[in-house]
């Protein structure tokens, strides 16, 4: 079936099966490989994108369901060559090592900074529960998000 997805403000007309998961439509059909697949079992958060401003796991949603919504992936954050404030603080605070989990962490951070009020460290760590990082020990990720919240 043909579907229309609006990703980062651009329209993509894609040919999918009903069972095509959103993350595969984004990566393999739209060619936006910034969104990663880690576990493929709804656990790691590497596939996190925003749908109408809310973080979701794109390995756990069918592409057809995202028609008519605004999808934002990590490629959609930087504007005119300027990094988004969250990207900048990940860079400055060394919030990544291998970078595999980073797009998911950043997209989740977008939702957190928009919708959560208690950003104290212990709560922030709890809010990051759906995203796994195998490298950093989380400390610098937490620092980066705290830092970005100050900018905001």
């Amino acid at each position: 079936m043909r579907i229309n997805l609006k990703i980062n403000g651009e329209n993509y007309e894609l040919e999918v099966e009903p069972r095509t998961l959103l993350v595969y439509a984004i990566r393999e059909l739209a060619g936006l490989t910034g969104t990663h697949v880690g576990c493929d079992t709804s656990s790691c958060g590497a596939c996190t994108v925003l749908i109408d401003g809310k973080a979701i796991k794109s390995c756990t949603l069918f592409a057809v369901q995202a028609q008519g919504s605004d999808i934002t992936t990590v490629e959609g954050l930087a504007k005119d060559g300027e990094l988004h404030p969250i990207q900048r603080s990940f860079k400055e605070k060394h919030g990544l090592q291998c970078g595999f989990c980073t797009p998911g962490m950043i997209m989740l951070a977008c939702d957190i900074l928009e919708n959560e009020t208690d950003l104290k460290e212990d709560n922030l760590r709890r809010l990051l529960k759906g995203n796994l990082c195998r490298c950093t020990g989380y400390q610098n990720i937490v620092d980066a998000i705290s830092d970005a919240s100050m900018v905001k």
Binding site: T60, G130, N131
Partner: peptide, 8 residues
């Protein structure tokens, strides 16, 4: 669960 699951 987590924020992403709770959003949907």
């Amino acid at each position: 669960a987590d924020i992403q699951i709770r959003n949907v």
